[in-house]
Design a protein around this nucleic acid. Structure first.
Lengths: 342, 342
DNA sequence: CGGTGTTGCGAAAACGTTATCGAAAACGTT
DNA sequence: AACGTTTTCGATAACGTTTTCGCAACACCG
């Protein structure tokens, strides 16, 4: 049961401005909204009163009356760097188009996106970006665009990135350099993007005529700890891999850390490729070769689409952004001899 | 003039539930809010109807009527890693206390915090954390806690960190290792924290009986580009510094990058200490010695205070969180001979 | 049975805003 | 001066919610 704070001191409202300017609330409202039918004199007087009192309107009340707002919501599961980058891109577009955005981080409770959407939709926000793996079963009350959505059938307009092609490219890149035993540290099965990446890996392996060894495929849920564990197991194999493809940069860094703790050198003993190109990737030593996902551009694209839907009643689409292999220093030729763990 | 989106399709409201359950809206409202005066039978019937229709309430309307909500705002200037870390801590506390939070990123326009506060305050949010350098002149309509606030007189309850002691410690640390020419790359003059850090630097220098050479003090506004420029100038001095104290980690990394581009080694030729301990600091090569600022804890502390103010009418205080020197690899003894730029 | 509580429920009034619509005033035209 | 037209303005009804308050109905007690 949501807790309610105690009542608050009164704020300056339309009626206060009206009294000050010696007009009716209706007139003040017209001035505020630039409606036709107010003489210049009175408009000036009203504006003066607004400035003096610092009137700012009340989003709840006007949203209630108008059934429309200029605020858009961004529903994120938590404030990770990933979400922050998306938000940056989205905020830039929204601002340029005259919309405001509020980011809403749901609790751990299941189905919070649906509830938030219903609670805020219409009165407070005119539409939303959702950046979570949750499925929306019912049609939402307001336009919605999903970013990096869940795996499975999805009727929502969506923006994601082409993880399949990206991972195919990364895998080929390793194969071209002579690697034949390439392991894959997968992500979270409930995310569509995770499936795309694994599919790309499998495709490239088979296309090259290499054996697809499923003991080299591990699910690490984008979790650094699980990635360390998986990497340790892989390196202990009788025939360990010479290269590691990781579902995201954080697991790639975790894997590289572990490898170095075991006395291996990256890339001399083990080549590693990440995914995302988060800022840390470039800073890591050795700088991480990775598949860049244009996070800010994705946020911007999603926001543009949402605004079109909200404003012009446009159809939502499915936009898949291109990825790009960023070559840095974490990939080399496969080590010639067998692995020696120090 | 804010753009308004077109009207939206109708949502399921209290009246719909009432009709479905065969009762009045008043009764449904009582059930939703767990008020006294509804028989168990009807309450059950109403709850069933609520579930069937997926009713979720309308924040705008209830906030309007009640003049109170369980939502708290976090006003950030932009979604930087800095803000994201604070948000994480704040979100954790809010969630535990049964509050929701929305993050609002203001545009570039001046005074957006004030306007947002007025527009959202009371109806939508019951209080706010503001994470910007802006001064609030008038008393805000809702309780407000400032995090890392502007420089100058400040009547708002505040959470910041003890940059003074932190920087004193960092400076002494360098002095203890034999450094005598220590430069300071300052931050943004409008932020209180920036002044604290510089004051700490000056204090430690004078306390040690070293000469305070103001040519070694530069303002870089937390801007990597300016930091590079300042570092270049400092290294070109007749008697260049042997160590650099930086206002934050980002400028420290920029300075280190430049030094290495000039053929210097860190820390052999130049010792560097940052401030904040952002995730990148540990990843940088060499790993950055820095003064840690407990960002998540600061967010959590600020949120706790805000909730106490909102819920129990508590007084706001000024909480200054401790900082901590994190020793890594970017500090060494001063180079013995003169600097030779490659 | 008349009183006196107690309980369950709904009608209606707010909260601050905007849209509609009619009244009043100002103006232009004969 | 009489009339039509335009302009300016305000009273009022919503929007979806919560709260107050009154009205029934029922139980209990003499």
């Amino acid at each position: 049961m949501p807790f309610m704070a105690k009542p608050l001191p009164p704020r300056v409202k339309l009626a206060d401005v009206a009294e000050r300017a010696g007009v009716s609330v209706a007139t003040v409202s017209k001035v505020v909204n630039d409606r036709y039918g107010v003489s210049e004199d009175t408009a000036a007087r009203v504006k003066e009163a607004i400035d003096e009192l610092g009137y700012a309107g009340n989003l709840g009340a006007s949203g209630l009356r108008m059934q429309a707002t200029n605020v858009l919501g961004v529903l994120v599961s938590s404030f990770e760097p990933f979400s922050a980058e998306l938000l940056k891109g989205a905020a830039r577009v929204a601002e340029g188009e005259g919309f405001e955005i509020i980011a809403h981080s749901g609790g751990a409770s299941f189905g919070w996106e649906r509830r938030s959407l219903a609670r805020l939709g219409g009165t407070i926000i005119a539409g939303a970006l959702i950046v979570t793996a949750t499925v929306l079963d019912a049609d939402p009350a307001v336009p919605v665009v999903a970013v990096d959505p869940h795996y499975g059938p999805n009727r929502l307009p969506t923006v994601d990135s082409d993880g399949f092609t990206g991972m195919v490219g990364a895998t080929r890149y390793l194969i071209d350099r002579g690697h034949t035993r390439i392991a894959f540290l997968g992500g979270r099965a409930e995310l569509d993007s995770s499936h795309l990446r694994e599919a790309g890996y499998r495709e490239a392996i088979q296309e090259a005529g290499l054996e697809l060894d499923t003991t080299l495929i591990r699910e690490t849920r984008y979790d650094p700890a699980l990635a360390r564990e998986a990497t340790r197991e892989l390196l202990m194999l009788e025939e360990p891999p010479t290269a590691l493809l990781c579902g995201n940069d954080q697991t790639a860094i975790a894997a590289a850390d572990l490898a170095r703790e075991l006395g291996l050198e990256v890339p001399a003993d083990l080549s590693i490729i990440g995914f995302d190109d988060i800022p840390d990737a470039a800073l890591y030593e050795p700088a991480l070769t990775t598949v860049r996902q244009p996070l800010q551009a994705m946020g911007a694209e999603a926001m543009s689409m949402l605004i079109a839907m909200v404003r012009d009643d446009a159809e939502g689409r499915h936009v898949r952004m291109p990825t790009e292999l960023v070559e840095r220093d974490s990939v080399g030729p496969p080590r010639p001899g067998p692995l020696r763990l120090g």
